[in-house]
């Protein structure tokens, strides 16, 4: 299925958010995720299922003013 990750179209096999995070290479990063502009806490990644056409925002800490 295809989903949008940080504004880019990505083809992915799994529907499980935790697996998607690992497949995309984020497992070593300190990130937080929103799916379709709704926050998904890390403790819910195991059970959260992503559907075709969903939009993921994967964010990490940056410097800020």
């Amino acid at each position: 299925m295809n989903i949008m990750v940080n504004g880019k179209d990505v083809e992915i096999a799994s529907h499980e958010l935790k697996t998607i995070v690992e497949t995309l290479g984020y497992q070593c990063h300190k990130v937080v995720i929103a799916v379709n502009q709704e926050f998904v806490a890390k403790e819910k990644w195991d059970d959260f299922r992503v559907s075709a056409g969903d939009t993921l925002d994967v964010l990490s800490p940056v410097e800020g003013g």
């Binding site: 940080n6 504004g7 995309l24 290479g25 984020y26 070593c28 990063h29 300190k30 990130v31 937080v32 925002d57 994967v58 964010l59 990490s60 800490p61 940056v62 410097e63 800020g64 003013g65």
Partner: peptide
């Protein structure tokens, strides 16, 4: 100190390093 959040590309190792420094 103030910080922020931005989109993270898996190829860039920015988030963890800046957070560790802060």
């Amino acid at each position: 100190v103030t910080t922020s959040l931005r989109r993270q590309s898996p190829e860039v190792k920015g988030g963890r390093s800046i957070w560790e420094r802060i």
